[in-house]
């Protein structure tokens, strides 16, 4: 049994979608707009158990066009592949799966495509064919589930440091090395350290589009999901907490190390960083995912749906690379030889 919800326009029964410009639900047919924070006109309906198949795939008929919609059991929001009618699996965003906050999309699909084109500019090694042949295979707005962790790190760190001074004494060159033992203790607080709670999207990708500004987050309402894809979390809190603590610990260590200025060498000898764990929160952050096919290979790009930060590794043209390296190598070799030749002739 599965609880679903779709969003019909109260005026014309058209399928409502979240509009990034107005930050409201908008009817594409009658242009009616509705505040997602208070929109309760969605229609809840139930899909029968029998429709679950063995592979944890739920199949149901679109209430708008009758087409078969297939969804993963973790799916929290999707759209009908035939008519685009958005649907939210309410059972995946309620109870323990209900996010506390959500940052609504601020940038739409069109802007994501523009950022993608910009991303390809000034990349010398990009194969010429990539721009013309590579087609955007799929572009989707995804609400990525995140765990946010607060924490206070208490650090006690010890360092061995040296200061070196050179001077002359009569006919002697002297090197004076002074050795110090440094101690630093203190604390620093971290707020809303995000950890990607979905195993479906690579952590590298979600971490690369960071940071999100959690101050702009809204209380969760299923209406925000209308028109986007969302998954519920499938990585538990404990596992995510370790990732957050590791990042907190690394940052704390770096912050305290940076207070040891004025030495010629500083080597940490021992440290103890204790993290007092604070609140944790389940949230959804917006991200545009682009899949591009080129030469039979899939390239994934991601854009922060809030800030527009665009990331994605690009293929390199080895011919271009060799050409550039050869140019530099021979250029320097010939120029360097010429300069040395002239210098020896002076």
């Amino acid at each position: 049994m599965s609880e679903l919800r779709d969003f019909k326009c109260p005026n014309c029964s058209g399928a409502l979608e979240f509009d990034t410009k107005s930050q409201k639900l908008k009817c594409p047919y009658c242009d009616g707009t509705f505040d997602p924070e208070v929109f309760n006109e969605g229609t809840d309906f139930t899909v029968n158990n029998e429709e679950w198949n063995d592979d944890n795939i739920i199949v149901y008929s679109c209430r708008s066009c009758g087409g078969a919609i297939m969804a993963d059991r973790d799916t929290a929001a999707t759209s009908c592949p035939y008519c685009g009618n958005p649907v939210v699996m309410t059972s995946n965003v309620s109870g323990v799966f209900k996010p506390k906050k959500i940052i609504p999309f601020k940038l739409d699909k069109k802007q994501a495509k523009e950022r993608y084109k910009k991303h390809l500019l000034n990349k010398y090694l990009l194969p010429d064919a990539f721009t013309s042949e590579a087609a955007i295979d799929e572009i989707k707005g995804v609400y990525v589930p995140y765990w946010l962790f607060d924490g206070r790190a208490n650090a006690r760190m010890w360092f061995d440091a040296t200061r070196v001074r050179f001077y002359t004494e009569g006919d002697y060159d002297c090197t004076e090395t002074s050795y110090y033992k440094l101690f630093r203790a203190g604390s620093v607080r971290f707020l809303d350290v995000p950890v990607d709670a979905s195993s479906k999207i690579p952590d590298e990708l979600t971490q690369s589009v960071e940071p999100y500004d959690n101050a702009e987050s809204k209380d969760f309402n299923t209406s925000y999901l209308a028109g986007y894809v969302a998954d519920k979390y499938d990585v538990d809190v404990a596992e995510s907490r370790d990732i957050a603590n590791s990042r907190i610990s690394n940052s704390t260590s770096a912050l305290f190390s940076s207070t040891t200025m004025g030495y010629d060498s500083v080597i940490p000898t021992s440290s103890s960083i204790a993290i007092t764990e604070g609140n944790q929160e389940y949230v959804m952050y917006p991200m545009w995912l682009l899949n591009v096919d080129y030469n039979g290979k899939k390239y994934t790009f991601a854009m922060n749906g809030q800030t527009g930060k665009f990331v994605g590794d690009l293929p390199s043209d080895n011919g271009k690379l060799i050409k550039a390296m050869a140019l530099v190598f021979f250029g320097i070799t010939i120029l360097g030889s010429l300069i040395q030749f002239i210098l020896t002739r002076l």
Binding site: S187, R189, E204, S246, V311, P315
Partner: peptide
């Protein structure tokens, strides 16, 4: 050509003025 990498730091999430020595 590379813009995707794992992040090991959490500098972005330090609370303002919370650093105390």
């Amino acid at each position: 050509m590379r813009s995707v990498s794992r992040q090991y730091m959490a500098h972005n999430y330090v609370v303002n003025n919370s650093f105390m020595l």
